[in-house]
């Protein structure tokens, strides 16, 4: 299933919160972020969480603004973290030729990136790991997970391991477009799962 859900600029700014500091004075263009396995406003599959294989989910994007030379992605939860957001995933130096991210980006730096995103590197999430780690909210609470994609007008060669603040600082003034996708997750412990 592929669900197209364009995000309005106003909503994008609200959803990405602190990321607005990385924007230009001129409002960035918006573009569409989708996933072949997830849909905005729906629960994500458990394989993207520690209740499953904890794979990074696939993303696709379309309608990038002209002049896009590189992309960056931050996945975060504004309902967690002290202070919020809790960062689940950061990946950047993504070539503009990429039309998305495949499922299961390696969490081991010794494993090469898929060829379509060669050169991309991962930053440090809330656990201090340069890898995707999916939702693990307290049982019984539904959390929202944002996948914010930034279109950049410059080809950066940033080192791996940047945290969210460091990445936003590095790309400040170079964000010419932004898209966002919001999914949900609620843990269902073994004891509460039927069968």
């Amino acid at each position: 299933m592929k669900v197209s859900v364009p995000v309005a600029l106003g909503a994008a700014l609200v959803l990405t919160g602190g990321a607005v500091t990385g924007l230009r004075a001129q409002a960035p263009a918006t573009f569409v972020v989708e996933s072949p396995t997830m849909a905005t406003g729906r629960f994500m599959p458990r394989d993207y969480s520690p209740d499953g294989r904890n794979l990074s989910p696939p993303l696709t994007w379309s309608g990038l603004p002209p002049g896009t030379r590189q992309l960056a992605v931050i996945s975060q939860d504004y309902g967690a973290g002290r202070p919020p957001p809790w960062v689940h995933w950061i990946i950047y130096n993504i070539p503009s030729s990429a039309q998305g991210l495949p499922e299961g980006i390696p969490f081991d730096a010794d494993h090469p990136m898929p060829t379509e995103i060669a050169g991309a590197v991962q930053g440090n999430n809330g656990w201090g790991l340069s890898a995707y780690r999916g939702p693990a909210p307290p049982a019984g609470s539904v959390h929202h997970y944002h996948f914010a994609v930034f279109a950049l007008d410059e080809e950066f060669d940033l080192p791996p391991g940047l945290d969210r603040g460091e990445l936003l600082q590095a790309i400040e003034g170079h964000v010419i477009g932004q898209g966002d996708m919001v999914t949900l997750y609620e843990r269902q412990p073994m004891s509460e799962r039927p069968g």
Binding site: P50, D51, R53, N54, F107, D108, L129, A136, M190
Partner: peptide, 19 residues
């Protein structure tokens, strides 16, 4: 790969809530 992934989740405490 899956062993390492599972151990990472155990290490960061994310496995705790799986019951």
């Amino acid at each position: 790969v899956d062993q390492d992934s599972a151990l990472i989740d155990v290490q960061i405490g994310a496995a705790t809530g799986a019951g």
